[in-house]
Each structure stands twice: as C-alpha cells, then as structure tokens.
Amino acid sequence: MTVDTAPDTQSQIHWFLIGMRGLFSLPAIILMLSFVGFAAFTAEANIPVDQVMFMTGMVWALPAKVILVGSMLSGAHVATAFIAVTLSSVRMMPMVAALIPEIRDRRTPTWLLLIISHFVAITAWVFAMEKVRDVPRYGRVAFFAGFGITLTVTNIILVGLVYGAVSSFPPIVSGCLFFLTPVYFLTSIWISARHRVIYWALGIGLALGYLFAVIAPEYDILLAGIIGGTLAWWGEKRLRQKEAGQ
C-alpha cells in the first residue's frame, strides 16, 4: 500500500485499534502511575471524586489540572483561575501545531483535527511524535485518536477507582510516583528526536526553565519555551548554514 491509497473504513478501524494498544506501552503505564499520584493529591485536598474525574476528562493535561486544583483550593475567582490555567497551557499550541503536519493528510477535515486535539497532552504528544513514523499517513489520525481517547478514558476510570485507596501512601512512594514523570519525559524526548534542533531545545529549555522559575516564576514556562526554543532553532540553523557552506 502507498501513502495515497484511499482510506477505507476497515483500515481506519485497524489503525484505531493499533493506537488503543498503546495503552500497554511504557509511556501509558507511567502516565497512569502519575494519575494515581494525582488522585492521591486531590483526595488529600478533599476535592470530590466526581469532580476529579470530570476535570481529568475535560482538562486532560496534568500540569494544568494541578494549577486548577490549586486555584480551587485557594478559592480563586474563576477569572483568576482561567488566567493561571491558560498561561500554563499556551504550550499546547506549538505542541499541537507540530503534531498536525505529522498526522493529517490532504483529506483530513478540520473539525476532526479540532476534536482529537483535545487528547493532546505531553504524554500523548511524545508518544505520537515517536510512533507515527511507523504508521502510514492515511492511518495516523485514527492511530492517534485510538491512543489518545483510550488513554483519557482509562485515566478517568482509574482516578475514580483509586481515589478512595490512595490517600495514605507513604511519602517515599508518592515521591517516586511524582519523579517518574520528568524522568520519563526526558528519556522519551531524547529517543524520539529526529532533528539536532530537538537536543538543543531540550538542553536550553531545561536551563532556562530553571532560570526563569527563579527570576520570573509567573511566566517561566512560556518565557523558557519561546526564548529557549528560538535560541535553539537560530543556533542550529546557523550551524546548518555554515556546514552547507563548506
């Protein structure tokens, strides 16, 4: 089959199912462990379990949810909470914008992309950027939808199931659960990088992430991303032009 083969329903279902199977992958398991940690965090904060399940489905991105819960607990006005959460979620835009050209083909309708974009969060993004290379283009949207929807629904159920049981973890266990997330992200980004610029952006982003968290904590992620990413892109491009010139 070639990339230009017309998509038929059967192959769409096939790639959707292959995407669903991603639930049994290392990244999905690590994310589920992180959600066990999130359930413990919300149970400790006495947020009702149905609201925790609701926000898991509606917000999906874990950092945004942590900020949302923090706002709810501090009794922040809904507008204040909106601003805090939306600032933490600006990164969704370049993440989705980088993913879309990888998964869509000429026939993919925009409304479908708008719907499946809801399932983009760091784990699904890292997983998809790594795996879609092995999926023919006509199956990529179905593949991502299968993975993203299954992962989201599973974690909504998981949070509901473990909520009552996890409030009394020993700190060493919740500490290790928490630390899984950054360690997993680091290894996945390294493995899935196909361009030199990704390594540069990772290194500069880590350094600036720390720097701006100290000097401008309100906008740290945003500043580190835009400035760090631009520096990495510019530096790599300069080097590339230099190499091409020789």
Partner: peptide, 25 residues
C-alpha cells in the same frame, strides 16, 4: 522547525520545574 524547537523547550521547562521545584512529598 522553529515550532518544534519551541514546543520541545516548553516541555523541557516543565521538566526542569518538576525536578528543581517539586510539590508534594
């Protein structure tokens, strides 16, 4: 390429915060 670099740097900044300024336990 630029969008990819910015997206990666944003995620890297989230990672740095989790490592340098963790919450909870």
């Amino acid at each position: 390429n630029w969008v990819r670099a910015v997206a990666t740097a944003l995620v890297a900044a989230v990672i740095a915060k989790l490592i340098f300024f963790p919450t909870g336990a």
